[in-house]
Write a protein that binds this DNA or RNA. Structure first.
Length: 211
DNA sequence: CAATAGATCATCT
DNA sequence: GATGATCTATTGC
């Protein structure tokens, strides 16, 4: 693909078999670190659900305590419970009456913090993703956005609390991860702490939700 | 292009 | 009863 072009090539970039053969599941210790580090290091990792998978190209860190944009800063409730539990689990919430957002819990158990997955570069199971998001006209519209990627990978609130170190929803690391530059910016679509630099993305990647 | 309205519900005030 | 970590279609320049 040439830089600047958009893609209407809907074929898989790699087979699921080869993807699994050339990657390893991220263990829980990866997530048991400061949220900002986990958010940055999740870039380039592979999110797999069933037969569909995509490369994480954009994330945001949501902290506890002073971070009023984070759900956890409002305290421990039924919804935010998983944020205070052990790392490496999914925090999925419903918003705007229509969309689900996927987060991965970070920090050691007892300390809240999570990483919002904001955009994926589709790799495998693209036909399946397209079936779930028929409105996507280009590959760039398939999973670039927090509401879009959960639709594309069929992730719902049923995955609330799911262990992403095992099971159908997992995150893997390529053994030979291609190098990339990391960009940093304020988070998108929030009202509190709107200038904190907690959004991370792969520079010059066409699948980032907003350049 | 950019700006804006509408969809629609869990959670909290 | 208001708000929100969004997306899409539509309108207007």
């Amino acid at each position: 693909m040439k830089a600047g072009a958009t893609s209407t090539d809907w074929s898989d970039r790699i087979s699921l078999d080869e993807l699994i053969r050339t990657s390893r599941i991220l263990e829980r210790s990866f997530y048991a670190r400061p949220t900002v580090e986990v958010a940055r290091d999740l870039l380039g990792k592979i999110l797999v659900h069933g037969h569909s998978a995509g490369r994480i190209v954009e994330t945001e860190a949501y902290l506890g305590g002073e971070d009023r944009a984070a759900h956890a800063s409002r305290g421990r409730t039924a919804r935010t419970e998983v944020l205070f539990g052990p790392p490496g689990h999914a925090y999925v919430f419903f918003i705007y009456g229509m969309y689900e957002c996927l987060n991965l819990v970070a920090e050691p158990e007892g300390t809240p913090g999570c990483v919002l997955i904001r955009a994926l570069e589709p790799l495998t199971g693209i036909a399946e993703m397209r079936r779930r998001r028929p409105r996507a006209r280009r590959l760039e519209e398939l999973a670039s956005g927090p509401g879009r990627l959960t639709q594309a990978l069929a992730i719902t609130r049923r995955h609330y609390g799911a262990d992403v170190t095992r099971g159908p929803l997992v995150v893997r690391a390529l053994v030979d991860e291609p190098p990339f530059r990391v960009g940093v910016s304020p988070r998108i679509g929030i009202r509190h702490c709107a200038d904190w630099p907690l959004r991370f993305f792969i520079e010059d990647n066409r699948f980032v939700s907003r350049p």
